[in-house]
Amino acid sequence: MAIVTLVTGGNVGNRYYSLSEAQREIEEKIGDVLVSSSYYESEPWGFDSDLPFINQALIVSTKLAPYDVLAEIKDIEIAIGRTSKSFNGEYTDRVVDIDIIFYDNLIMFDDPELIIPHPHMHKRRFVLEPLYEIASRMVHPTKQVSVAALLHACIDTNKVYSARSI
């Protein structure tokens, strides 16, 4: 069994319902959710929108290989209502987004479709805050520092707030 770390998010529609559905589908199609963070609200990252995001980190035990996890994620996103992440190279509002942050200690940089660890996770407070809650001591396989150290060093100025649970 492998341990895959995911971050889910969305800023359109009933955000809590969408993330709840994403977690249910992950549990059904990818593997057992071992632990999940609280919900965190943040401003959109990388584009302007009046709609704040809700994010959550999940640690999942899976029998699936990395590309199979990615395929299931894409299917889950579409089933929940995802259209595209970007338009003309610009990020856009979305119902749900699921990113693979870590897959065990695997390092994959050869394929732009799947880069592990996630290439921007250390720059994004909305990823690091929920991840810190459930895995502060997890070590980034290429940077060789903990999630806690990454959060402490993060220069992202977007505010991240703990949000309500459902």
Rank of each mutant, 00 (worst) to 15 (best):
D75W: 04
A2V: 07
I76F: 12
A2K: 13
V127P: 08
G89K: 07
M108L: 15
R125K: 15
D50K: 13
Y132C: 05
L19D: 11
G13L: 05
H140P: 05
R164F: 13
L58P: 01
H140F: 07
S84Q: 14
G10I: 09
H152Y: 12
V60M: 04
K74P: 00
I30C: 07
A163E: 10
D104V: 05
F126T: 13
F102E: 03
H122I: 03
S136H: 12
D48G: 04
V12G: 04
V35L: 08
F102M: 01
P141D: 03
L128E: 08
V35M: 07
Y103T: 09
S38K: 13
Y161P: 00
A135V: 00
L114T: 02
F47G: 11
Q56G: 02
F53W: 02
I101K: 08
K85D: 14
E72F: 01
M1D: 09
N158W: 03
S162D: 00
L70H: 05
M1N: 04
F102H: 00
V60H: 04
E43C: 01
S162C: 05
I73M: 03
K63S: 14
L131R: 01
I115Q: 13
N105V: 05
S37R: 10
R164W: 11
A135S: 10
N55A: 07
I166Q: 08
H118L: 03
I98Q: 08
S162A: 07
V145N: 01
V12K: 12
Y39E: 02
I30D: 11
D32L: 12
P112N: 07
E113T: 11
K29F: 11
R125S: 05
D48C: 01
I155G: 00
Y16L: 00
F102V: 02
D93R: 05
N105A: 12
P112H: 04
I155D: 14
S61F: 00
K123M: 15
A79W: 03
D68T: 10
A79S: 15
V60C: 07
I73H: 02
S61H: 04
D110N: 14
V160K: 02
F109W: 01
L150D: 07
R124H: 13
R124E: 12
E133L: 02
P130R: 01
A148I: 06
Q144L: 14
E90A: 12
L64V: 06
V4R: 02
A71M: 08
